[in-house]
């Protein structure tokens, strides 16, 4: 697998322009614009309530923007539903684990493959050869993903029974099952211990090598600084800064927002 060269000269995979979203009178997103090149890991940081999760919800189509647009892979997403966006290649994980608790890990990953498989009601009832073949291929692919994320041992355990660290990884496995071009990770390291966080960093590197572009919300700065090629800082719904981790570290506006004016 060849990963696109991180950085320049490529058409952006995601281009957000003048995105605005109001909740009541509050501007949760205020005229946000940025673009992300394919193959990079982009960190999204900012204090609580800065609008990071709202931005994810706008990109995935849970909310629709009041103004501005999200262009994904060259296509305007304005009229696309959530599932159409997943089909187009946007996948996500949640801040608080949202696995299907009563289903096994393997089944969770198989549900993640929903948009890439097609058998429906009649397929289920008739079990024609193509349905059986599709199911077999799906299981093989799901197992490969569990192998890749190091969760194969838990394939047949109910997802709700796993420790939080494994559940976080499992969400990534499920998101990868839809063959995303862009993967949005909402605080993947929240609730993880130091060892698990390190493993997560390695996993993200591995996913990057597969050519998946990632955006992640992260509070763990050492993790974020280590794995991100680019960072965007939000504060109270507006973009405060954008640049390489080093640039962000030395940005005065960012320092002020984090440490308070003074």
């Amino acid at each position: 697998m060849i990963s696109p060269e991180p950085g320049h000269n490529n058409k952006p995979i995601l281009a957000v322009s003048s995105l605005t979203k109001m909740f009541g009178g509050v501007k949760a997103q205020d005229n946000i614009s940025f673009s992300i090149q394919p193959g990079i890991v982009c960190g999204l940081i900012g204090p609580n309530g800065a609008g990071k999760t709202t931005l994810f919800n706008l990109i995935t189509g849970i909310y629709s923007p009041d103004e501005g647009q999200v262009v994904f892979n060259g296509k305007d997403t304005r009229k696309m539903t959530v599932d159409q966006r997943v089909r187009a290649g946007i996948a996500r994980t949640f801040q608080h684990v949202e696995l299907f608790g009563s289903m096994t890990l393997l089944e969770n990953v198989l549900v993640g493959m929903h948009v890439r498989t097609r058998s429906g009601f009649w397929g289920a009832v008739t079990r024609l050869p193509w349905v059986i073949r599709e199911e077999k291929e799906a299981v093989e692919k799901a197992e490969a993903l569990l192998e890749f994320t190091g969760l194969m041992d838990y394939a047949h355990h109910p997802a709700g029974d796993l420790p939080v660290g494994r559940q976080k990884t499992a969400e990534i496995a499920r998101a990868l099952a839809s063959d995303p071009l862009l993967l949005l990770l909402d605080e993947p390291a929240a609730g993880l211990n130091a060892v698990e966080t390190e493993a997560l960093g390695k996993l993200i590197e591995q996913v990057k090598k597969r050519g998946v572009t990632m955006m992640l919300v992260e509070h763990d700065m050492s993790l974020a600084m280590g794995i991100c090629d680019k960072m965007i800082v939000l504060d109270q719904g507006s973009k405060l800064a954008e640049g390489t981790p080093r640039e962000i570290q030395n940005n005065e506006a960012v320092m002020a927002a984090y440490l308070g004016q003074g």
């Binding site: 959530v82 599932d83 949202e98 099952a177």
Partner: peptide
């Protein structure tokens, strides 16, 4: 079954 376990997530996976 995924809808039953968590509709939010099943929407999100497409």
């Amino acid at each position: 079954r995924s809808i039953h376990d968590g509709e939010k997530a099943s929407l999100a996976v497409g």
